[in-house]
Design a protein around this nucleic acid. Structure first.
Lengths: 227, 227
DNA sequence: TTGTTTGTTTGCGCTGGCGCAAAGACAGTG
DNA sequence: CACTGTCTTTGCGCCAGCGCAAACAAACAA
């Protein structure tokens, strides 16, 4: 359990490592395998989770098949804040992407902790605001932007959140299939595949099965902004 | 300024009328004409607003023309919570729909009030959660649902938030143009117009210029769920 | 090795719904 | 009243991108 140096988006931002550890100790830490469902859309919300290591993906499904990928949740970020409110259900499903360590608190504990440490409320509000903004932008794009540009923006978003630099290239360091990228962008598997193939020919990206490397980030940014 | 009985979605939920009035007194109350821009997307966030009377609409624009209507804000709800965070810009533009009374607080005051009254933090979190859920659902729909169903759902959403019953019919009690309904739904003026015309023939809705009456809510609900 | 599973690519045809254009309806003003 | 600006309706043509189908490729197991 690493201490000290909680970052800006962090739930524990502004707290000392000691305070953070104490708070983590009051929850239940769990290690999860890849592709484990942590909670299901529609189930009563019992725990709020903080990701310590690894990554969750939050998805929402539509009657019969269609799915959207709302967001990836990385280390330091909360999932299911909704739990602090009484009698709510999870609005999304959370599944681990790789091996993932989370800590969970139930409502009572969470409210206690928040009462003792008002900074946490601010951090939660910051996090909700950030997510709301993100989704507002994507909502706008989904309506106003062409698919190819949206795919570009999606890749760049994911890259910012989880990219690992390697020379000029940027590696997205977790497996993401064409289908998932489609769900995240709001398009289809086929369109994503066609688009990535085209970009591969231009040398903008390289990709293997479920692995994407952005070879020319600059070109992608230009494309996403202009066309 | 009406006291007592703040409702569930309210910012002042759980407070006595007296406490609420005191908090309102510490802000700046303003009466605005219809179609007044309260704040602009991109401007530095200086004030958080609570709507006391009337209605705001929050919109976001895309480079050149295209616009989405993120949400209507009615009495009791907050706009621009983002202000409590340092150095942020408004992510949307807020414009009054009819005559509207709001009260605004700057960040310092807001943080003080929140520190004195932790319940407000919970209320703010509740409100962000609700909005996030709303937007997540609409994001899913925008991707997964056909336009006509989306228009139906949009109408029903607006109806729930601002409908006035009159016999079997439900009147949406503020002016909303085809263009606005299109921006809210994520489609075009033309498609909305064609759709409403068709529904008018079926007797589901009646509409005059910028006024919509839902004549057969039940039929609309059925249609939005099945088709 | 072979077989199985799971993911990816690409050709091809189809259509939902966008958006122009032009006419019509309504509200407000002087 | 006529005049002006704003909102609405509808016909029509077009195309982005969806989705089937079928082949292909990579990963893993036995």
């Amino acid at each position: 359990m690493d201490k000290a140096g909680y970052q800006l988006t962090d739930f524990l931002h502004g707290l000392s490592g000691k305070q953070g550890d104490e708070i983590i100790r009051r929850g239940t830490t769990r290690d999860l395998k890849a592709q484990t469902v942590l909670f299901h859309e529609g189930d009563p919300a019992r725990q709020t989770y903080l990701v310590l290591k690894g990554r969750l993906k939050l998805g929402k499904v539509h009657e019969l098949g269609k799915e959207v990928l709302i967001r990836y949740i990385g280390p330091g970020e909360l999932a299911a804040m909704i739990t602090v409110l009484e009698g709510r259900d999870y609005p999304v499903t959370a599944e681990t992407v790789g091996e993932t360590r989370v800590v969970g608190w139930d409502r009572r504990t969470m409210l206690q902790i928040m009462a003792e440490c008002p900074q946490l409320s601010i951090n939660m509000i910051r996090n909700s605001m950030d997510r709301l903004e993100d989704l507002q932008s994507r909502y706008l794009e989904l309506h106003a932007e062409q698919v190819e540009k949206r795919i570009a923006r999606s890749l760049l978003r994911i890259m910012k959140q989880s990219g690992r630099r390697s020379g000029d290239e940027i590696i997205i360091d977790f497996p993401i299939s064409r289908q998932e990228l489609a769900d995240y962008t709001g398009t289809t598997l086929y369109t994503v595949s066609r688009t990535l193939s085209a970009w591969e020919k231009k040398g903008w990206v390289k990709s293997k099965r479920a692995r994407i490397i952005i070879a020319d980030p600059h070109a992608l940014v230009l494309f996403s902004e202009k066309g």
